[in-house]
Design a protein around this nucleic acid. Structure first.
Lengths: 361, 361
DNA sequence: GTTGCGCACACAAACGATTGAGTGACGGCC
DNA sequence: GGCCGTCACTCAATCGTTTGTGTGCGCAAC
């Protein structure tokens, strides 16, 4: 690929002149004649500025990092798409890091990316008390948290109004007439799961309906939902409705309920969270709280880029954007069965019509 | 961040000494004493080599491009994960480009990435006659095609044995007893779709079962599958089984069939292609040809990195890896209904039990 | 006729690391 | 004792751009 020097020789000018011509340097006027010669030479050599050299000089790589648990998870893939679109429009590019929820992987990636002189970092892996996030923020790196918040530092972030989301879910079930509602909670060290659980407990408490044994610890995956549901089903009295930590946990819970002979939504209403693409396709289609993943990524990228390119003006305030969720009502929720005081249903009443769902994930 | 010069001053040696110490330069032996001083100074300043500067000097950025239609599509997200894992292990990083199947976006990205001096490119967007791929290859860029092949040039690639995949699908249906099999084809300009269609026609021809009107043009998305199925249902005689271009098209086809009052698999068996995560979760769970997406990405990354780092030894041969597919039998296929010569089923016989599926995607 | 001042460019020093080519000092050998 | 060779480094050029500081030239003013 041609360099500035060669183009300069061809155009009969000094390299610096071309550089200034290209970026329209205000304190240097260039005659029409040389400008034309320069453009011709650039055309002839198919010159494109070497961004590595430019980065070295300008101390700006236009490279962003995006830290996610696993990019194969559609939730984060859609987020990446949002990030990519905004970044690309601003001349930035994104390097993805999969941490698999392991702090040591995050730490390792961090050093590598710092060595690469990235301009900023989007973090979607934060824990509520994440020492890495805290350290980065204290050391003055440009970071923006996405979706998951960190309680140790007032870091700029784009997140969801989780309280509103959980209220939508619970109130939907209350409106349907449910009074016996359970919650399968997500990982407690993650802010989203924590807030969802706390809000669930608050709202239920306020209505005098909270039953501590109906809030069980789960995780953000299918298997955990399955296990948690089995736990719920062993209780003497069982709920008529359930809010799961996320859609995958909801699917696992539905599997367990079906194995136990329960029909969804006739015997058990289930509300998911996130509205992943799968949610609309399973049977019954999941009623769920929609999280605008793509928009979240896009807004976060905007925030980060503004922080990087923007002057010192707003550099000190940690902007925190909160997006609003939306309830998507589908088929997995219905009014409770007329027989109040639902008793534990006997086992072996059949497997429902979809044996495949009985498989463990 | 500390630079080599500062570390050198602290350690009392010349910067170049540190550089050589770090990369164990063979033609320079370093005394234990200075080595210790150097390591201490590095520790003290928390020095990490600036990869931008190194890239400029070494003419190697350790950056790879990955061109996909849309990273939000789980197929490509999983592929990216495979790429990322291998790349990371070799000290490479990946920049993702979403082309949305638009050549002008691909072209634009290309120039940007060339300016960034990326070391190589993974291309998952190739068309059968892709001028961009041809040009890149002719100009000597390090590229590897993933999944989709280009017929204009003998480019290194990692792809699937599509013929084997389609044979698995058709023979599975034949084994079940089907003789009336249709195919919804994918975009003809894409090699995978083209090969699937050609193999379908060959195999059916060989068995004397090919009916040209039962091979309809579709696309790799749900809506196209829906439309194509409606087309099939308007024919005087309808097939008892169907192989779709991919899983999404299969889902669309199932929707259309259901609207028409057909049950899957009782009245119509459907085989998908790809085995996306959704395939196992829908109802009925899709019988489908599994494409090892993650492995595909991983192998492609290995090939590309070998080509970049490897010497000129194997630089000239275009290695072409072909992976084998696997048939995953689930619930969407069954023997044909006993009544031979199936006639068009009357409309309005009900919508099946899942109205949601009737929605267009 | 010298000074002053724009104009339109050239020069050269960075940015931070790598690397081929030195360069003193020391030791061994004849 | 002079010479060569090794050891353990240092020097300086280089990668391709950017940018602050010249610099010659023409023109106008006094």
């Amino acid at each position: 690929m041609a360099t500035l020097k060669e183009v300069a020789r061809l155009a009969g000018v000094h390299p610096s002149t071309i550089s200034r011509a290209l970026r329209n340097d205000p304190n240097l006027r260039i005659s029409e004649a040389t400008r034309r010669r320069i453009l011709q030479a650039i055309e002839a050599t198919n010159y494109h500025p070497n961004r590595v050299a430019r980065s070295l000089k300008a101390q700006r790589t236009h490279l962003l990092g995006l830290m996610v648990p696993d990019i194969a998870n559609p939730f984060f893939a859609v987020m990446l798409r949002g990030v990519e679109d905004v970044a690309g429009a601003w001349g930035f590019h994104v390097i993805v890091c999969n941490t698999d929820e392991r702090p040591e992987k995050a730490e390792a990636y961090l050093h590598i990316l710092m060595g690469r002189q990235i301009d900023g970092m989007l973090i979607a892996t934060s824990h509520r008390e994440d020492p890495i996030v805290q350290r980065l923020w204290r050391e003055g790196y440009a970071i923006v948290l996405v979706n998951r918040l960190c309680e140790l530092a007032q870091v700029p972030s784009v997140s969801l109004d989780e309280a509103a989301g959980m209220r939508l879910a619970v109130e939907h079930l209350l409106d349907l007439g449910h009074r016996h509602i359970a919650h399968i909670a997500g990982p407690p060290q993650v802010s989203t799961a924590h807030q969802r659980r706390r809000t669930f407990e608050e709202v239920m408490q306020r209505h005098g309906l909270l039953r501590p044994e109906w809030v069980v610890q789960g995780d953000y995956n299918r298997q955990a939902g399955y296990q948690a549901m089995r736990q719920l089903l062993q209780l003497p009295e069982r709920p008529t409705a359930l809010v799961a930590a996320n859609d995958l946990a909801a699917l696992g819970a539905i599997s367990a309920a079906r194995e136990h002979g329960l029909r969804v939504p006739a015997d058990l209403s289930v509300v998911g969270y996130n509205d992943i693409p799968l949610a609309a396709e399973v049977s019954p289609a999941l009623t769920t709280v929609r999280v605008p993943m793509s928009q979240m990524g896009a807004r976060a990228a905007e925030l980060l880029i503004a922080r990087i390119t923007g002057g010192a003006g707003q550099g000190c305030v940690a902007e925190r954007v909160v997006l609003q969720p939306e309830l998507v009502v589908r088929e997995s929720t219905a009014p409770p069965a007329p027989r109040r005081r639902a008793l534990a249903v006997g086992r072996g009443r059949g497997h429902g019509h979809r044996p495949a769902h009985a498989r463990l994930p």
